[in-house]
Design a binder for these strands. Sequence first.
DNA 1: ACCTGAACACCGTTCAAGT
DNA 2: ACCTGAACACCGTTCAAGT
Lengths: 234, 234
Amino acid sequence: MNPNKATPITKEKIVSASWDLLRSDGIENFTMRKLAKQLDIKAASLYWHFPSKQNIFQYLANEIAKKVLLSVRNEEDWKAALYQFGMHFREQLEKYPCSAQLMMQTLPSEPEYLALINAMLIIVDPLPLSDRDKFSAIACMLNYVLSFELDRHQQKKVNLAMQQDGMEHVQKQSANAMDHLPDHVADPLRRMHRNQIFSELGSISMFQTGLTILISGIEQLSLARREDDVGHMA
Amino acid sequence: MNPNKATPITKEKIVSASWDLLRSDGIENFTMRKLAKQLDIKAASLYWHFPSKQNIFQYLANEIAKKVLLSVRNEEDWKAALYQFGMHFREQLEKYPCSAQLMMQTLPSEPEYLALINAMLIIVDPLPLSDRDKFSAIACMLNYVLSFELDRHQQKKVNLAMQQDGMEHVQKQSANAMDHLPDHVADPLRRMHRNQIFSELGSISMFQTGLTILISGIEQLSLARREDDVGHMA
DNA sequence: ACCTGAACACCGTTCAAGT
DNA sequence: ACCTGAACACCGTTCAAGT
């Protein structure tokens, strides 16, 4: 029907269609056949441009990493730098559909992803910490940012389902489960549910709180390790 | 062939076979047909006991949560309590195959999962923090523990692949990517790679470092918020 | 109550064959 | 160089029919 001779499919076109498909159908419903249909080609043709579906996902994850790296700015002290990095990172993740899933199911073997980790390590490199501690610290950060976006994404889906159903079963399910918690025990969770804390779940201010916890935790760790050193010298 | 009349399949048997299948094949290769074969029944029969594959996963995730709750002990101060909680949580996650994947792709709607979150909230409830801050803090913790186990799991797979291949392409892939990092910039990542930091990736001591960061970060946050209060009063 | 055969509507991937 | 038809070897799930 459409031999596409005039305008052959390119890697870029496939990538762009992939973003569209992720946005409309989610990563769990992303199929090669749907992707091909969107491009007016057959699924088999995709394999001339990419070796596998997994490889497309890796490419997309790497594109996100590349974008995050662009927005990295130099900062005076490491705390501000780490904070800005986290904020920019989250901002970029929010722009791309299924960004957190893409980066989590891709191990960091792509160059830009590694460069991203390297950029974070550079920030904490001047701290009086062992390499193992530095690595632990930035792994914490990375996982935090990704998990946060993942949770936000899931929360959005739950909210959507609640709207569509007139919050029939989704809301009820968690509300019921909440009611069946033991009564004889303090239950901050139920209190928070009453106070609608859950609706704020993916908010920026919550993100900032976690970021603050991590950064001042890292600061405390380097203070503690420094004391260890002093102890050793004495 | 085997009508199983003497010993009908029970929910427990399906669950037990599911753990076996997860351990041997991983969550990505877990199929209803394989699960049925292991129980000497047909895939369709599983749907009399469980409404869906997803529901089996939810059940398994809930089983993990139940087990973690059992190992929660009372502690004098909140820092020790949170630390012990994290350590026990990670310990249980290590025992079950694909535990982190199961808990991450299940939103916390099951009763035991909610009880788990509640148990964590109880620990931080006495702190001088807003409910929003408390929730942020334990979301941090939860995500940290799950992400850590997830990373450990992936790292184990990478190591296995390296052994089987005689580290042909996996090692090379990341080593090459490492070599192509820009040279004109500080590269702590390459230094750490040389110093074999990566092989320690899922170790308990690394886990403890992250846990320490989080807990002292939460402590600092409550100190800061307390100062805010004092400021308001003045 | 519990299980199966057979089907439905899909998957990712391969590959000889086309242009 | 780029694409397709047709197939392979699978999926999760349903449901009438069996015992």
